[in-house]
Design a protein around this nucleic acid. Structure first.
Length: 442
DNA sequence: TCTGGGGTCCTAGGACCC
DNA sequence: TCTGGGGTCCTAGGACCC
């Protein structure tokens, strides 16, 4: 029998913060998104207070304070490094580890038929990771990924499992399916679960009991796969994930957003530069560049402007300055079009008002259409000296690697930090900056 | 005043071709 | 008055995930 494990870190970001603040164990903790915008992680105690995932922080600030909830800005350097510790421990327990997200990984246990007690093996794994990293984890073991995800939720919910829930018989599977709400099934989101409840499907068991024909005719192939997985037939594969199909860097800007076009350009140049760097790390070149920028979805006053523009390059590239200039050209021309259309027919008196440009709340750059960097088709009309360019990029990456990122950058990114996201409640870089390492007092 | 960021996959429908 | 049929490719947008 094939068996897969899913290891899931409990309330990962909160647990990371707590590892370095043991005084907060047992107390409510939340972690905020960039700009301290939304609540994106909650400890069990915070969940018990009724705090929802994704709630805007400003709406909950007073409540959090009244209830003594510890609040943290997101600290991705810390979470990334803690994740790495957890994953390297998990890798010791399986021949095949698939890291699925910052706090989750699948483990292939198929080769472990000779292990007499896989449940006990799982419990050991959970105990070891929790003890060694300070991050509590839950492990589900089952014949398919979808069922393993489900098992891990049981492992988390019921203390009696000691962190590890094994679903290795049809009887256990049936029982679990009946207890599991359809909306919590992996791959069934809000939209689909609403449809299903409308059709009388309330639990995973209700759904699994439908005929294949019925599922095919009502939903897409993705949902059919989920149905098969619930019935114990593996059909989701995770292989070859490391090559991404698109790479995106985007940010929301603090408060009302950015009105100054120069500042917006600097931000976009910085996003382009970061995208290009991520892309070089996976040794690709991109064929397409998309830039986007838009005003707030929530603002009811002020001009609304949505920019989304894509350009195909004449030859794939991984050069920061080329990608950056393509993104900036698209951005500028879209803004020019907007301005011209809003200036047309206005007299001078109205212009001052019109020229108060829109406040762009969010912007980003997406690179896609990747080809491996060693397999580039030369463009017949390409006049750029590729070899020289490659040498320059390598040199810059190397300087930045040694001296801190952004030490060398292109001039369009500006000499100041273009915008400083709010992170009022940020913890320190306990694991990645020597100046922030905790000091033990004897 | 203040509402995250980064991905994947699928489908419908338009553009284009013969 | 009457305005084809079938195929491919691309893109935007929706749904999902963490």
């Amino acid at each position: 029998m094939q068996l897969f494990g899913l290891a899931d870190c409990n309330n990962f970001y909160c647990s990371c913060e707590r590892t370095f603040r043991p005084d907060l164990v047992g107390k409510p903790v939340v972690v905020l998104s960039n700009n301290d915008g939304c609540i994106i992680a909650r400890s069990e105690e915070a969940k018990a207070l009724g705090i929802k995932m994704g709630e805007p922080f400003f709406q909950r600030r007073a409540f959090l304070q009244e209830n003594g909830v510890a609040v943290f800005s997101s600290n991705y350097a810390l979470y990334g490094s803690m994740s790495h510790r957890v994953m390297s421990l998990l890798a010791q327990y399986t021949p095949q580890l698939d890291v699925y997200s910052i706090d989750e990984a699948f483990l292939d246990f198929s080769a472990f038929n000779n292990i007499p007690d896989i449940k006990q093996y799982g419990e050991q794994l959970v105990h070891r990771v929790t003890k060694a990293t300070g991050i509590p984890i839950s492990l589900g073991i089952a014949p398919t990924y979808t069922l393993a995800k489900m098992s891990s939720k049981f492992a988390k919910k019921y203390k009696g499992y000691k962190g590890c829930c094994l679903m290795d018989t049809d009887e256990k599977r049936q029982k679990a399916l009946q207890l599991f709400p359809i909306k919590d099934v992996w791959g069934i989101g809000r939209r689909l679960s609403t449809d299903m409840v409308y059709q009388g499907i309330h639990t995973a068991a209700d759904f699994a009991a439908k005929s294949e024909q019925w599922v095919r005719s009502h939903f897409t192939v993705t949902t059919l796969r989920t149905w098969k997985e619930l019935n114990g037939i593996p059909c989701i594969s995770l292989d070859e994930l490391p090559q991404k199909k698109s790479i995106c860097t985007s940010r929301s800007f603090p408060e009302r957003g950015i009105a100054d076009v120069g500042a917006l350009e600097e931000a976009v140049a910085a996003f382009a530069s970061l995208c290009a760097k991520k892309m070089r790390e996976q040794q690709s070149c991109c064929q397409n560049v998309t830039v986007f920028a838009h005003t707030s979805r929530f603002a009811t006053d002020g001009p609304v402007h949505v920019i989304q523009k894509t350009r195909s390059l004449s030859a794939p590239t991984q050069d920061t300055s080329e990608i950056s200039s393509v993104a900036l050209n698209m951005l500028r021309s879209e803004i020019d079009i907007y301005r011209n259309s809003h200036l047309a027919g206005k007299d001078i008196g109205e212009r001052a008002d019109v020229m108060s440009s829109p406040h762009y709340k969010k912007a980003g750059v997406i690179l896609w259409g990747f080809v491996p960097q060693n397999a580039i088709q030369q463009d017949l009309f390409d006049h750029i000296d590729r070899n020289r360019q490659t040498a320059l990029i390598k040199a810059i990456d190397e300087i930045n690697r040694k001296n801190g990122h952004d030490r060398v950058r292109i001039a369009t990114e500006g000499t100041d930090v273009p915008f400083e996201p709010d992170h009022q409640y940020r913890s320190r870089q306990f694991t990645t900056d020597i100046n922030d390492v905790l000091v033990a007092q004897i």
